[in-house]
Design a protein around this nucleic acid. Structure first.
Length: 473
RNA sequence: GCCCCCAUCGUCUAGUGGCCUAGGACACCACCCUUUCAAGGUGGCGGCACGGGUUCGAAUCCCGUUGGGGGUGCCA
């Protein structure tokens, strides 16, 4: 029995630290994670550390934190790492030497400008293989280039099937720079070999580089990993999501009150559908279910638009399905410290089903937490519209009187009371509540009125109605 | 320029030659419910890029066109 057949698969996730974690990267991480969990394999985190990143350890930590947020925890037995590309620096150079000695690579003393000049003169694109047979040895300023063999390279991709590249379209690419340091493509392949990576699942933008890497694996005497290239995420212009134009930092969504579960669920629907989603009439499903069902063969081939509206819809759905105590706890964490938590807990069930993000919470209930004796800030449009009817002032007065005389102070009694009052004006509750709502909350929209007034308490409610009445005179 | 990938409602997708009068989700519209706003319910609008083949039969297979994207560094 051959070892490699029975060995558990190892998936590598290799983000480059740039100070934030890209939503596209998050989705790819999720793909790798689902596969590692379902197949009993390992998710290997490898940081493609650069000089700049090395000086900023917080960047790496940011990636680890973001991964943890979407449920990829470094505490999990399926998780390995982080590893750093720099750990294998010696192996990179050793591999380059091996390639040189086996004749798979050769040195070249042409500078970048000279290569370009030759290409121009010869009317070809890129490097023309000038030093292939010049027998140059290593030396300062000389780069090591890979001797691309004749023929074709077939990349067997789990998402796309076989992709064939004509080797004549691939130039003899650089392995070692003039200063002797390895370039990314070599480092990457060597890292994969060193870390015994069996599966590479990454974004489609890497597909054109894959034949080069595959040739490197072969020249180094190793089986290439199983490749899988998933489609990229795009913006409304159908361009690959970029930091400059688009909101791509996953940390930002976290800070804006999106729930990790909603984000994970939405990300997974891009390019893939959970079998059975159509029958159930919903794309909302727990991670455990998606991880068990995820298959690379089922991933779509075309780019997907990252749709904020749909994310928002998912988020609202997830907020609504939270157990009340969990919702209260989560929401309370981000409330101003001086807001009464018990009071918030009373109104919480009435706002939970009206939210898009958790960040909307304070703005929805802030009218309940005004300092003692504070003025009410009225929304101008709301005020004008609510107080315009000729019956508005009289009704407000009547309601004030009725509320002052009320025995029981609860939502039901509050509602009955206003219903009795409005009957004399022959208007419906929908209209009658408007002046009261604006007087008490300052706005025309918000949580259910009578529940809010109950929470507010009689003294404060009456004070606010008096305040409004005062403005109306 | 060259190479590679892609192409179903506005968006994300189901669909692997007959089950398709092309299904679902988000968005949008209408109605119902209703204490504002949501949520929920019901219904509606809306798509196989185009042209050739192959086949008894094509959204599905082949070729071409067009359109989009990505890659082409001594960046990662």
């Amino acid at each position: 029995m051959v070892d490699s057949v029975t060995r558990a698969p190892r998936f590598r996730f290799a983000p480059s630290p740039t100070g934030f974690f890209h939503v596209g990267g998050a989705r790819t991480a999720l793909h790798n994670w689902a596969l590692a969990q379902r197949l009993g394999g390992t998710f290997v985190l490898r940081i493609e550390d650069t000089d700049e990143a090395r000086n900023r350890p917080e960047w790496t930590q940011g990636i680890i934190d973001a991964l943890a947020w979407i449920g990829i925890s470094d505490e999990d037995p399926h998780f390995e790492g982080p590893h750093f590309q720099s750990e294998f620096a010696n192996a990179h150079v050793a591999a380059a030497e091996q390639l040189y000695e086996s004749g798979h690579a050769y040195y070249c003393d042409l500078s970048g400008e000279e290569v370009q000049q030759r290409a121009k003169d010869l009317g070809v694109t890129g490097y023309d293989g000038y030093s292939r047979d010049r027998g140059l040895g290593p030396g300062p300023g000389r780069v090591l280039r890979f001797r691309v063999p004749d023929g074709t390279t077939v990349v067997d991709d789990l998402v796309r099937g076989e992709v064939t590249f004509d080797n004549s379209t691939i130039e003899d690419f650089v392995l070692l720079r003039g200063n002797g340091t390895p370039v990314f493509i070599l480092a990457n392949v060597v890292d994969d070999i060193e870390m015994e990576i069996s599966n590479v699942v990454r974004a489609e933008e890497h597909l054109p580089n894959t034949p080069k890497q595959q040739m490197l694996f072969e020249a180094l005497g190793h089986e290439p990993p199983a490749w899988a290239h998933v489609p990229v995420l795009v913006n409304e212009q159908r361009k690959k999501l970029s930091k400059r134009r688009d909101k791509v930092a996953i940390e930002q969504y976290r800070d804006e009150g999106y729930l990790a579960d909603a984000m994970v669920n939405y990300l997974m629907t891009l390019g893939w559908t959970l079998p059975g989603a159509e029958e159930s009439g919903s794309e909302i499903a727990p991670w455990s279910e998606m991880a068990q069902a995820f298959r690379l063969e089922d991933v779509t081939h075309s780019p997907a638009f990252f749709d904020l509206q749909k994310l928002a819809a998912f988020n609202g759905d997830y907020i609504r399905s939270m157990p009340l105590d969990e919702f209260v706890a989560a929401a309370s964490a981000d409330l101003p410290p001086d807001w009464n938590r018990a009071r918030f807990a009373e109104i919480a069930p009435h706002i939970q089903q009206r939210l898009v993000t958790m960040r909307d919470v304070p703005g929805t209930v802030d009218f309940l937490f005004l300092p003692d004796g504070a003025e009410i800030e009225y929304d101008e449009k709301s005020w004008d519209k609510a107080m315009k009817p000729d019956w508005a002032v009289a009704l407000l007065r009547d309601v004030r009187g009725a509320y002052a005389a009320l025995d029981a102070w609860d939502a039901a009694a509050l509602k009955e009371s206003i219903e009795a009052t409005m009957a004399t004006y022959e208007i419906k509750l929908g209209k009658a509540q408007a002046p009261v709502r604006v007087a008490v909350t300052g706005r025309s929209v918000g949580p259910p009125l009578f529940e809010a007034i109950e929470v507010l308490g009689r003294d404060e409610a009456l004070r606010r109605i008096d305040l409004a009445l005062g403005h109306l005179e």
